[in-house]
Design a protein around this nucleic acid. Structure first.
Lengths: 334, 334
DNA sequence: CTGAAAGCGCTTACAG
DNA sequence: CTGAAAGCGCTTACAG
């Protein structure tokens, strides 16, 4: 059995389709008697208007696209939840697409958003761009999109509204605070600072912190690899064997933090260094293990991004907004 | 600037809209020369067909709806990832909606799916149904949906294809194994077995296990509360003070597992009971803390559900499938 | 307050 | 292989 249409209702109610449409869109313009009658019939036939038809006719969509690297990572899961909260409040729905931090999939995702004619897109760009050619292609696709785009979490220099955390300040602040508390050899385990914007931002903050604290840069304490657990695990194990020991270690994302912990616990060396992780690690709290972390509210990141989009939809001509969210350092062990 | 339409292309190429449409849908029916010319023009105008218009015209949608309780819970995040994998392979896109395990939101979500005319829905029903009236209403809405529905993770007795884990067997197996290894006083911390299907399934498994092992039911070891961390935390703290101690504790979801751990670690009593949690707790592995758990592959759950939907779309008349996934007990400490 | 008509961007028998 | 025309389910000026 097929869905009832506006024509079915019109026929049954002995009115025109226009009138039925009006009770949907501007009921105050319809005489009460006919309105009631039409509503009654709608109920009987359990009529619901087709969003597809409405969108085509009105030439706007009621859905918003979201592109994130991977939803099974809790950081993005929470980001997504924050987005949903605001999007639902504004009677929009959510089309989801992941990009796996891969530029090819990013392009596929963008193509989908285009063909779906979404109202706007909330976009966490893939950041493992090695090939500049693809990046250019992505920029072209973004420009071709006829809807507002909000760029989230990673600043890849696009001319859109943006929201991200101020990781650079957070890293700087962390280094300065560690130094104040007596650390002088501060190691950093980070992603690839050449191909990954996030990693280079964080590294810059680290450098600024050293300078501010009057500490020299010791490149033997700087580790740029992949944002994977295994990289931090191996690095930390090496570090533990060194002659010249650091006194503090900063891990620059949640996978690296886990790898670090895995290594120090495995070696029974959990109290060797002062450790600061980027993002809280909830399970440590649960186990009653104190730790230090840079706190980033990913729900809030999502909410702010979605609000930015809603604002942009309402005021297409307003100036580009760039929101920087604070990421405070939480100290529990030093 | 607006998107180019099929008419724009047709005009420029001096052919009819039908021909342009053909190069999109059945290019082999178009003479090579005209096809090439049209494709060229499409590129020049960076034309992409509107999914909205196409869906309306073809009377089918290319998007699939997903309703899950909350994406920020990693269990559902992983489930969702599994779904996405299959859905993308089949050239479908994903409309996301959460229900917060709340029946009101469940209805909102279903209404959205209806109005969006999705191709099918992957549905994890909210399970905190106190009011039977609402449940009936939800069943009515599901029946009214003109598309296939796959019911995931919770068997609420709906006449659809289903996939879930065999928690009942897993619990039975767990109790039997614990008994074999010498435990005789096995506590269970569970959700509300009256209002929550999952909780009652798990409790049944527990009861079966006791029977099979020849152990008596001691109701002072049975805890039915909320699936929240705080409930397990409080319960465990009480338990630790008791005179008559259990020798094993089973926690029936990941929040409860965390609450249990929080309590035993806080009291420094982490080795008091043999603990089995439902679902692996990754952080424990990382910290090198052995634990026992019932393993459920939530990615696989998502994949299977999506495959079921794809199959149902292809063969609408095939018999209802009910898939039960195994959830093996992994023992590390006993 | 209501209806006839055109239009949104596509697809698809039908005829040639 | 191609085009004219009708149709998908709505909305919206326009006229009354």
């Amino acid at each position: 059995m097929k869905n009832a249409t506006i024509s079915d209702i019109a026929k049954r109610a002995e009115v025109s389709k226009a009138t039925v449409s009006r009770v949907l869109n501007s009921p105050e313009k319809v005489e009460q008697g006919t309105r009631l009658k039409i509503e009654q019939i709608m109920k009987e036939l359990s009529y619901t208007p087709s969003a597809t038809a409405r969108n085509l006719s009105k030439q706007v969509s009621s859905t918003v696209g979201v592109i994130v690297p991977e939803i099974s990572n809790s950081f993005f899961g929470e980001l997504f939840s924050g987005i949903e909260e605001i999007v639902n409040k504004n009677d929009l729905s959510l089309l989801y697409c992941s990009n796996d931090d891969d530029e090819e999939k990013d392009m596929t995702a963008l193509a989908l958003m285009d063909t779906q004619r979404v109202r706007g897109v909330l976009y966490v760009p893939a950041v493992n761009y090695e090939a500049v050619g693809k990046r250019k292609e992505i920029e072209r696709m973004l420009a071709a999109l006829k809807c507002p785009v909000i760029c989230i979490d990673r600043d890849i220099g696009l001319p859109f509204d943006t929201v991200h955390f101020d990781d650079k300040s957070a890293l700087r602040q962390t280094v300065v605070t560690l130094a104040e508390k007596g650390c002088s050899r501060i190691a950093i385990i980070n992603g690839n600072n050449r191909s990954n914007v996030l990693a280079s931002e964080r590294y810059e903050g680290y450098l600024e912190g050293l300078k501010e604290a009057g500490l020299p840069l010791d490149t033997s304490l700087v580790f740029h690899g992949e944002y994977h657990r295994g990289y931090a695990y191996e690095t930390t194990k090496q570090l533990l064997k060194r002659k010249e020991q650091p006194d503090a270690v900063i891990t620059c994302n949640n996978s690296l933090g886990r790898g670090y912990l895995q290594a120090v616990y495995e070696m029974g060396r959990q109290n060797t260094y002062t450790h600061v992780s980027l993002d809280r690690i909830e399970m440590l709290d649960i186990l009653g293990i104190s730790h230090n972390y840079i706190e980033r509210d990913s729900f809030e990141l999502g909410r702010r991004a979605a609000e930015l989009l809603v604002g942009r939809i309402a005021f297409p001509e307003r100036e580009t907004q760039n929101i920087l969210l604070e990421a405070p350092l939480i100290r529990e062990t030093f």
